[in-house]
Amino acid sequence: MADLVLILSILVATMRAAAPLLFAGLGELVAERSGVLNLGVEGMMLVGAAVGFAAHAVTGSFVLGLLAAILAGAAMAALFALLTLRLLANQVATGLALTIFGVGLSALIGLPWAGVPATGLPAALWPGLAHDSPALQQVLLLLDPLVWLAFAAVVAVDWFLRRSRTGLALRAVGESAEVAHALGTKVLRIRFLAVLFGGAMAGLAGADLSLAYTPMWVENMTAGRGWIALALVVFSTWKPWWLTAGALLFGFVTIAQFQAEAFGLSFSPDLLATLPYLATIVVLVLISRDATRLRLAAPAALGKPFRPSD
């Protein structure tokens, strides 16, 4: 029984740690599949976290908080889209600038709420659970609705990309904007919407942190999770299920490290912190070993600007 509780609590903790990475990663994955590389995930997450927390603090509604975060993330992404898609600015430089901008903007927005205590999103799907419930049920107390939403989003995005007509068009745009354009696909519109989706999901990921996972606002509270999400997209070779595996693996490594430490075993936490990046580099090396695999994995038009010829 005690072991079951322990195993279940590791599983639950892993899922919770993975949820914000999944939101941000899925959003970026869709944007990249349309051929746009947005390195501003960390910045969009931070703005989402600050705006989400502020909106919840003002209105008292979690739903409005989440919506505000989604809109804020999308607004940041719209700025990025305007610069890179319309004005053809360099995507890498603009994305980096977006992150730096997001760090500052979120600090400014969140200033009145820095350190204000808040209660987290309740585990609404588990009515009747209380602190004095049996241990096994208590573990489930930790699963908030956003965790379920994150995993539902994986199924939805995977279906969208592989089975829907729009998803097909989006992938075509990411492979070759010129060909897609010649076939009558509205390249810029699809890319714009994909980038917007990426921003909305990053905003949601931020709100997951500031409203559910660690319910508060403090500057830089994402602590690099946006960058990990970016790394996971490459690690996943742009496939939603692999992204899920990567996010869970990363969450699990962190949790397992703490569990091992509390048991008295020791790992180098610094080495573990480098794992997602190391794994990404390994995957990059593997998929670039031959041209065919690289072409199959990465969206061919990733990072390439498109100017409609007519």
């Binding site: 740690a17 930790l142 996972y213 602590a223 703490f258 569990q259 430490e261 509390a262």
Partner: peptide, 25 residues
Amino acid sequence: IKVVWTSSWFDPGKDREAADTLISQ
């Protein structure tokens, strides 16, 4: 006392994972 190192002065997410772990143990 069970000690867990987060290797970060400031990472609320890691603090939460560490605290959850300690409770589960």
